[in-house]
Amino acid sequence: MRSVLPILTVVLAIIVLWYGATVALNAQWTRDQAARAGVEVGFSEIVRDTLAQTRPKLPAPHQVAAELYQSTWVEEVFGRRGIVATGTLSNRSLIYHGWVTLSATMLGFAFGTGLGILLAIGIVHSRAMDMSFMPWAIASQTVPILAIAPMVIVVLASIGIKGLIPKAIIAAYLSFFPVLVGMVKGFRAPDAMQLDLLRTYSASRARTFWQLRLPSSVPYLFASLKVGIAAALVGTIVGELPAGASAGLGARLLSGSYYGQTIQIWAALLAAATLAAGLVVIVGAIERVVLGRMGMRS
């Protein structure tokens, strides 16, 4: 594991910078409090106080870590509503909220990937679709998702669709695009010579697709999937922000910001980042296995 050392170095550097920023950003509040109480504070007192505020501008890493531990392990194992006590996940735990977000992400990702691949097949085989559809696909991504998400949620809620599906649709909206672009490129990856070879066999377009275009596109597919799955997670979280969703990492972020619980916000952020990293790593692992089996080592 040669890669561990560089990663640890980077993590360490981030933590050091983070602590520095914590002290710098929270110091003002500490000084204001001291001034109001009419006491003088020294540097060491400032440092001690800035790292232990209840509503800091920027919580210290150990505060976020403690919150993560509290809202996962402690909540589920020892909590009144935890899985150990009730048999179901506690609605106060990040595991529960993470699962809500993950399930919508996976559904949206599956939707988006399927849609992206189907559109790419159409675009590669039909010049009319290539000319007509691609500009719309690009335009769709220039509209800020934050502007569209509330409308999708509200419109779908008005026709009785709530919960998982609206979030998954927003996730799909974000994740189909990288898959579409990657797969158009992937399906067009075979060079003229390889296409000519199949022409010498009088192979049909369907044959050419299954035997040549599809296998050639696999490396592109996985590159797109990594971008797409992260985009799906972002889409889901954005979908959880409006209209008072009660569950999911996005809802956690929103309730944290309502009540000024910065530690909770950061814990949810970190959980989301970990989830995204985990998903990308899983896609990467599948990629290595599949490409290895196909004789194309990445």
Binding site: M193, Q194, L197, S202, L212, P215, M294, G295, M296
Partner: peptide, 19 residues
């Protein structure tokens, strides 16, 4: 061509890496 009159060999082997 449709009656399989010829086999064609290109400058590059162009073998499929996945086969």
């Amino acid at each position: 061509r449709q009656s399989r009159a010829y086999g064609y060999v290109f400058q590059a082997a162009g073998l499929y890496p996945w086969r």
